[in-house]
Design a protein around this nucleic acid. Sequence first.
DNA 1: TATTAATCCTACTATTTTACTCGGTTTAGA
DNA 2: TCTAAACCGAGTAAAATAGTAGGATTAATA
Lengths: 140, 140
Amino acid sequence: MLISTRGRYGLRSLVDLVINAGDNPIPLREIAERQGISESYLEQVFAILRKAGLITAVRGSYGGYTLARPASEITIKEILSALEGSLVPVDCVTNEQNSQCRRKNSCITHSFWKELDVKISELLSSTTLQDLVNKNENRL
Amino acid sequence: MLISTRGRYGLRSLVDLVINAGDNPIPLREIAERQGISESYLEQVFAILRKAGLITAVRGSYGGYTLARPASEITIKEILSALEGSLVPVDCVTNEQNSQCRRKNSCITHSFWKELDVKISELLSSTTLQDLVNKNENRL
DNA sequence: TATTAATCCTACTATTTTACTCGGTTTAGA
DNA sequence: TCTAAACCGAGTAAAATAGTAGGATTAATA
């Protein structure tokens, strides 16, 4: 599995956030209710998104969350990378030094994994949060 | 991570099997040595590949493994599907009844996951084991 | 026929990841 | 001051991962 519940919950919740956005920030409780996700689990997901600079929090009563940037400027890749840590299909194609495989240059399969990684990255980085919302609106 | 060591070991070992194929079946010990993989772990990997009908075993002394079909007729998707069980990026796009999500039709993100799944499938099913071997030979 | 080298099979295990829950602290509007 | 929100850290049960271990079966060969 490339994407865990953390990534799926996060993406669904951000789409929810865009669709239900108004003048005020949206409390997590509402998103959790609408999406049928445990609020305390979603808290942790949103903490990651906030630290990644994708959402902004307003604390205190009548607080909640808003997107830090327009939905059209946030790619799915940014969202999922933050939540999943890494999106590489196999460890050996990561850029991190310590997990790069020693066989990298001689490994026959390495270039194939790289090719797969590029294909996945292309789709994820060419799709924005707004694209997802639009796609949904067209369906209605 | 989409692909675990089981999938990576399996694919690398099959490439090894093709490259080193001769008149006789190749014993697992040799592959494990060349690839630097624990032989007893690789046993389990090869058991899966055999049950999936991708390789044929010859038991007893001077035994070993051969491909069940020509490398050009075995896709990477077949290999990895067997080893990983499923290759879907998220559970909700699987065809199995019990893990299909209830929100399937209303879920905004579902069609995106499906799109990702198709992209990955396209590459994996259009590449054969022979393609990987050829790619390597061209590099030399 | 005994030896040997291979596949085959089952069970166990340590570690890591996942998907949470829980209890409390801080913040800020009414 | 009350309340509703974000924030924080610790704990935890279950599953997946990546193996190890020990033996049973099979078949070629000396």
